[in-house]
């Protein structure tokens, strides 16, 4: 059985249907990419998965447990951490306080301290700026903070929404390096990206979304060579 099984998801904003029929699976240890044009429903899918939006139809099962109706703050405890679109760090809090917020569901002080040390090791810039207000960081640094904050909960699965959006090429490469390292350390990754080329290059498998439906799925390397994908998403 897959670690995450999403079946027949339908989601509405008022009367407007944003997700029509979304089904996908994520296996333990995989890097899965969700790609698709702006407005396809990627963010909506992730928000529904982590409990910020209610599903009208369909089910979400994580490690055998139905979490479709579970409130967001309980889903974190299940082991899913969400790095939201636009980073959404707490700009008035310091870098350190943001990271501590990431460990909100953790009780063990020693474990939190260890996590913090690991995050600082992974993102030395965050340690340098730990007392700085998050709002004063650059976009790339905020993205690192958002990722570090998510890792503070020791997640089994990390869900990332457009981590490379608006970043300079140097930062984009750095962020993708980090995603690969996070994956190598055993965390399952679900990655939403408009930068399809980059996403497919590090993913095991991928799903393509179009106006609320999954229209294509398969092995990431194969999708990279698919003509329709090349034309629509890779700009070739």
């Amino acid at each position: 059985m897959a670690m995450l099984e999403v079946k027949g998801l339908q989601v509405y904003y008022g009367v407007i249907q944003a997700l029509k029929d979304i089904s996908f699976e994520v296996n333990q240890g995989e890097v899965i990419a969700l790609i698709g044009a702006n407005g396809a429903g990627k963010t909506t899918t992730l928000h529904t998965l982590t409990g910020l939006l209610p599903a009208k139809q369909g089910s979400i099962v994580f490690e055998g447990k139905d979490i479709t109706k579970m409130p967001a703050h309980k889903i974190v405890e299940m082991g899913i951490a969400h790095v939201p679109e636009g980073r959404r760090v707490f700009s008035q809090l310091s870098v350190y306080e943001n990271l501590i917020m990431g460990a909100f569901t953790r009780k063990d002080k020693k474990e939190i301290a260890e996590n913090l040390e690991n995050v600082y090791k992974r993102f030395p810039r965050l340690q340098e700026r730990k007392n700085q207000r998050a709002g004063t960081l650059s976009g790339g640094e905020q993205q690192m903070l958002a990722m570090g904050r998510a890792l503070m909960s020791n997640p089994k699965m990390i869900v990332m929404d457009e981590p490379s959006m608006g970043l300079s090429p140097i930062f984009v490469n750095e962020i993708f390096d980090i995603i690969e390292k996070v994956s190598a350390s055993g965390t399952t990754v679900l990655l939403v990206e408009q930068n399809a080329k980059k996403a497919l290059s590090i993913a095991d498998r991928a799903y393509v979304l179009e106006t609320g439906n999954i229209v294509l799925s398969g092995d990431a390397k194969e999708l990279m060579n698919d003509d329709s994908i090349k034309k629509a998403y890779l700009g070739e």
Partner: peptide, 24 residues
């Protein structure tokens, strides 16, 4: 305090606070 920090987080971004595990 932890509940105090949760308040600051909710006041700034309710959704992001929920993603941290804060019960709004």
């Amino acid at each position: 305090t932890k509940p105090g920090r949760a308040m600051k987080a909710v006041s700034e971004d309710r959704g992001a606070a929920q993603l941290m595990g804060v019960n709004v």
